[in-house]
Write a protein that binds this DNA or RNA. Structure first.
Length: 236
DNA sequence: GCAAAGATTTGCT
DNA sequence: GCAAATCTTTGCC
């Protein structure tokens, strides 16, 4: 159960507007002592079937089907054969769009996130030697909290998200994986923007659209945006 | 049925 | 800074 389930209608409108609105929002997994909570600090918008960087550009397929459905639903897929990516579907049914959650900042359940990261890393077929697994575990245990989920694959690892979460309604307070409005005490955020990451296959103008949105100054932001601390809107 | 590429991360050069 | 790891999805034969 959640006290402030995120309003679905805020996701139903424009995806670029929704991208700003979800920054600062809480991503929540589970309940009770194992509950994990983190602030969303970085997202990317994938808008419509004409967006050549989006999975939706080829039309509706088995994989991207939920992107064509109602807003507030989780779209989870496997990339590079080993990492999962979490998206929040936006816009009305029939128009495929979503926000890729690229980074979150732990608020509660940090120990649980570390455990999940270790589990995920040691599940990878690549890591088999005992010494290697032990080194990986210590490395994760030594990470600052801000680096536990500073990347799209890492968000899913820290929150134990995989394709079984595909299609979950994240605006439903009873869902095990959900989003919740930021607490009233949270101050205003400074939003920075830049081009989307890892879409080199896309032609212009999609390649350079500044559809990556992140919280300036957050240590949890992935890649180069991490160092952006300006107080004003920034375009990288 | 087969080949190619990918909304990433990590470790080594 | 570059390449490997890994497997699902998609496209074409």
């Amino acid at each position: 159960m959640t006290d402030r389930p995120f309003p679905r209608d805020l996701l139903a409108a424009g995806t670029l507007d929704a991208a700003r609105l979800v920054l600062g929002v809480f991503l929540i997994r589970g309940s009770g002592p194992e509950r994990r909570v983190a602030r969303i600090v970085e997202v990317e918008a994938y808008v419509g079937d004409d967006d050549m960087a989006s999975h939706a550009h080829l039309g509706r397929t088995k994989r991207n089907a939920v992107m064509f459905g109602p807003p507030g639903v989780a779209y989870v897929y496997l990339v590079y054969g080993m990492y999962h990516c979490l998206n929040i579907v936006t816009e009305a049914s029939g128009r495929p769009a979503a926000l890729l959650v690229r980074a979150v900042e732990p608020v509660e359940g940090e120990a649980e996130m570390r455990l999940a990261r270790v589990r995920s890393a040691q599940t990878r077929p690549n890591r088999n030697a005992t010494a290697d697994a032990d080194r990986t575990r210590r490395q994760i245990e030594g990470l600052p909290a801000s680096r536990l989920a500073s990347g799209p694959g890492l968000v899913c690892a820290a929150f134990s998200i995989d394709r079984s979460d595909n299609g979950i309604d994240m605006c439903d307070g009873n869902s095990d994986l959900r989003i919740e409005a930021a607490p009233p005490g949270d101050g205003p955020l400074t939003v920075a923007t830049g081009p989307r990451i890892g879409i080199g296959y896309a032609p212009e103008p999609w390649l350079s659209q500044p559809w990556r949105y992140f919280v300036a100054g957050s240590a949890a932001v992935s890649g180069r945006g991490r160092n952006v601390t300006g107080r004003r809107e920034v375009t990288e």
